[in-house]
């Protein structure tokens, strides 16, 4: 067992033990806090696929997070008001079932990522950062002016969506769902990273010319990675909206994109479990520093600055050594 896989196990164990202990002690707030961390971790794992493995610095992932949230919000809104989503050319009803909402969120955000990626990947480097940021803002302003679904005020959902056999309004059961999704996503990304696709993607980040010389098309690899990355982040968005029973344009703001990026960096770029550590640390900081001072973002900024300037590789870089180079 390498230090990294040991750290992964400790991390996942920690995320499981904390809410179980809180459940035993009847502290639902702690359970909700951990659920938030788990959902942010899913979003970060999604971004990490593009950012860590593909080297694609996307500053617009809030768009996919928000699209997933709105996919849930719109379907559940139509189900709770008993109005069809559309009645022409065929009738589509809303739904309150997570098992329908998730695929819709994944497909919607995946398709959006495919379209944004296809345009943005024509460029690279700093252009790519700014263009993904701009596309994120485009979706943000669109949701603000989209008055049919609440515009600036967002959409509230009265009851959490249903999952067969579970009571989703019970914090620990909803946590279990999110944790299960995280485990599945991690397993999927782990496999993808070690499959020929993941290896080719990492090779593309390191040296595009060589990869082209052996007959791969970097653009196609990047685009696939970006679309899958967006789809995973979209799934996290659907869960996040369900956790709050609320979706609003703030999910799509550029700060959200920045925060998802912070999870990845705090944890360790290019490590499969890195964003999990990053999201957990972020929630921990938010909770402890937020209790100390209403201006806790100053401390967060200082810590982030310290990590970027002095502790490259994040938590995993510090604790697990430099098995994977962060270049």
């Amino acid at each position: 067992m390498t230090r990294e896989s040991f750290l992964n196990a400790v991390l996942m164990g920690f995320l499981l033990v904390v809410p179980l202990a809180a459940w035993a002690l009847d502290e639902p707030f702690i359970i909700t806090l951990t659920t938030r961390a788990v959902i942010f971790a899913i979003a970060g794992v999604g971004l990490n696929l593009a950012l860590g493995f593909g080297g694609l610095v996307s500053f617009g992932h809030a768009a996919f997070f928000g699209l997933g949230g709105y996919a849930m919000g719109i379907l559940a809104y139509h189900a709770q008001t008993y109005t069809p989503l559309m009645d022409w050319p065929f009738v589509i009803e809303g739904t309150k079932s997570m098992l329908v909402i998730w695929p819709v969120a994944i497909v919607a955000s995946g398709l959006a990522a495919l379209a944004i990626g296809a345009l943005s990947l024509r460029t690279s480097g700093v252009y790519f950062i700014m263009i993904t940021l701009a596309f994120g803002q485009m979706f943000f302003y669109f949701t603000i002016s989209w008055s049919a679904y609440g515009g600036e005020d967002g959409l509230s959902i009265y009851v959490r969506n249903s999952f067969p056999g579970l009571n989703t309004m019970d914090p620990i059961q909803f946590f279990a769902i999110c944790y299960g999704v995280l485990v599945l996503v991690l397993a999927g990304v782990q496999r993808l990273a070690h499959a020929s696709f993941g290896l080719a993607l990492r090779a593309a980040r390191q040296n595009e010319e060589r990869l082209q010389a052996v007959g791969q098309v970097p653009y196609r690899l990047y685009l696939t990675a970006f679309a899958i990355s967006g789809a995973i982040t979209g799934l996290a968005g659907a869960l996040f909206a369900d956790l709050n029973r609320f979706v609003s344009p703030s999910m799509l703001s550029w700060q959200t994109s920045g925060e998802i990026m912070v999870f990845v960096i705090l944890g360790g770029v290019g490590r499969v479990y890195g964003p999990v550590a990053g999201a957990a640390l972020f929630i921990l900081l938010e909770h402890t520093l937020g209790g100390l001072s209403p201006y806790w973002h100053v401390y967060l900024g200082a810590i982030l600055l310290g990590v970027v300037l002095f502790a490259r590789g994040g938590i995993f870089g510090l604790l697990a050594g430099r098995e994977v180079a962060h270049d």
Binding site: V126, V262, V298, G301, L304, L305
Partner: peptide
């Protein structure tokens, strides 16, 4: 540094400046 580090460090500066001004 690469652009990612620049983005994050200046993002951190935004957090510090914004909250500092609010304070």
């Amino acid at each position: 540094r690469d652009h990612l580090d620049q983005v994050l460090a200046t993002f951190a500066l935004i957090l510090i400046f914004s909250e500092g001004t609010r304070w």
